[in-house]
Design a protein around this nucleic acid. Structure first.
Lengths: 348, 348
DNA sequence: ATTAGCACTCTACTGTCCGGAGTGCTAGGT
DNA sequence: ACCTAGCACTCCGGACAGTAGAGTGCTAAT
């Protein structure tokens, strides 16, 4: 297993093949590496190296007389080096200041969280040309306040303001309630639960809460029940997906049979949940087979959490081909998550 | 121009070609029509008819020795006859009772409008296998009530309950406001505007509204301003798109170059707006070139408005290939719009 | 007016060929 | 021991021709 160590030359070759393949989407020949990347040796020598890299599982050869294509494994070591700080050597890892500017301009002043998330996904899609997703995380969040607004008969609109998000939902109560009752219930619940995480409410606490108000006891219990069900991972997670058609621009997805599973996966919330959550602490890169869902094993996912005042409240990310300019994509996703964090922290 | 009249035989042939093409997605030969549809004449006679129909612009021939394909124009007369009441003759126009059942079950009890719309689009996508859209219409709607909920500093959550929809939005006020002030403003605005349509507020009325409360006058004006901007067509229209990848199942979209414009169009809200709005009174069918947007001129759109207590508040519809089982699709969209109307009328 | 028959046209598939790309190997050079 | 030039070999993919089949349009007969 000594053969698995990448000596300097092999790494140079591998890096060159990756860059070349990312740029051209076609198997890379030894000659191409030889005179587009000045490694100071001949094509024949490069060939030897490529041969070795193929045996090590870093490169793949579609057929005998074809060039080489990087494997998932190759991208993995490449990305690992990048993330370990070698980012500086990758020229394209810095975003141009105009791009930073553009990102900031598109996000700043978006007062509405939904709008901000849509905009974030759109911006990412525009800059990467990949399908992009922004989502609220389903993790536990602290309640800030709760309001009930009367609608029709026994329905009320429950507005939940949490650390980092605002959600609304129509709930059905056991009985019609007056506007006044609803206001009392709202205040009671807000007072009791503000600063708390909904998911760690015990049954007995819910019970006790009801005692605070004799008339509206049943309503309090009903509302908290809704809140608990709702605060769980099931709902409350929303995905804003933009630019799905971008995937069809990529040469590897010209064949509809390859593209469809990916598109279909992006259509389905459960899949997005599995692919993007739980929110990673730093930028997270999942390459090809590393993905937990079969349908997107031909893709890479780059995602990063965004925060509101230090607390993770959601994710932004892209889904693209494994052949991806990782340095740039990582930088973009990271910067976007950062900017989004700033924007939202000012709002909620 | 006498030739433009479709005599009985020609119509029979045209109907047969349409049905056959819808079923098989391949140019239809005279023989196929001859012995799969018992018109009692030979293939040669059919050929004569088909020739005439081709000259009249109802059929199209990909090349000399190919069968015939219906044109947009053919589908148009077909659909017109269907809609004129001949629907009864199209066997597949009735939904099976299990399908009706299924639709009703998937929608009933959805208390939340957003959830109901998502579910509606998903159901339609599942039953038609086409990309499906549910949207709130951008038309003028009566205000029911307005609530302001304090967030951070000068931001507040504005919850707007209208006839048929509930919307929320974070707004920025000119200055920080207390919870109490916000409540007063909410009440004032609700009282003044309930039952009114936001878009027909005059400037002087807005001015006058401010006089109702001396302390919070500036807030009232700010909120109403937001409301007016928001109540216009610009925002407040939301689209729930489901099943976009279904388009790739259709044989006519196996070529990515055909599929991409459609997918891209479905990604863009302005396009959806142009394609689906204004909401049609009855089921609306736009075939191929009839569509107002170039990118989907290869598709047909079937859409219907849904209502809350008689008032149109949104649209549901599908985007599919022009080769579409119109009778069935129309019936589905119509029934779904109806069911959605019932569901939402119970909620809001 | 309808039909059977037939010649004609065009597609789509098959098999073959050939040039080019790119490798792997080997022999010779430093 | 490592590198490199040269060369034989493999495989792909486009061009080409030939063929079967599908489906028409036309004509002559009923």
């Amino acid at each position: 297993m000594l053969a698995h160590k990448l000596d300097a030359r092999k790494q140079q070759i591998l890096w060159a093949v990756i860059q070349e393949y990312v740029a051209r989407a076609e198997p890379v020949a030894s000659e191409a590496v030889c005179h587009r990347y000045g490694l100071g040796v001949s094509a024949a020598t490069i060939r030897n190296g490529m041969h070795a890299l193929t045996e090590m599982g870093y490169l793949y050869q579609p057929h005998t007389s074809a060039g080489r294509v990087p494997t998932d494994r190759a991208y993995r070591v490449y990305v690992d080096r990048l993330m370990a700080g070698h980012l500086l050597f990758a020229r394209d890892s810095w975003l141009s200041s105009t791009e930073r500017e553009r990102i900031r301009r598109r996000l700043q002043g978006r007062d509405d969280p939904e709008e901000a998330l849509t905009e974030a996904a759109q911006t990412l899609a525009a800059l990467t040309d990949y399908p992009s997703v922004a989502s609220t995380s389903g993790g536990p969040r602290q309640l800030r306040r709760l309001h009930l607004i009367p609608l029709v008969e026994d329905r009320a609109l429950m507005v939940v303001v949490t650390e980092g998000a605002v959600e609304q939902r129509v709930v059905r109560l056991h009985r019609p309630a007056t506007e006044d009752e609803l206001r009392r219930v709202s205040q009671l619940v807000t007072q009791a639960l503000a600063g708390r995480t909904i998911s760690d409410l015990s049954d007995s606490e819910v019970e006790r809460l009801g005692h605070g108000d004799l008339v509206a006891r049943d309503l309090v219990v009903a509302v908290v029940e809704h809140l608990r069900r709702y605060g769980g991972l099931r709902t409350g997670v929303r995905f804003f997906v933009e630019g799905v058609s971008n995937i069809l621009k990529q040469p590897e997805f010209q064949d509809v049979r390859r593209a469809r599973p990916v598109l279909a996966a992006l259509d389905r919330e459960e899949v997005l949940r599995d692919v993007l959550l739980p929110a990673p602490a730093d930028v997270h890169v999942r390459i090809g087979r590393e993905n937990p869902v079969d349908d997107i094993r031909g893709c890479s996912v780059v995602a990063a959490a965004y925060r509101v005042r230090g607390r993770i409240v959601g994710v932004v990310g892209v889904v693209g081909p494994t052949r991806m300019p990782y340095a740039r994509t990582i930088a973009l996703v990271r910067y976007l998550a950062q900017t989004l964090s700033d924007t939202l922290s000012r709002v909620v």
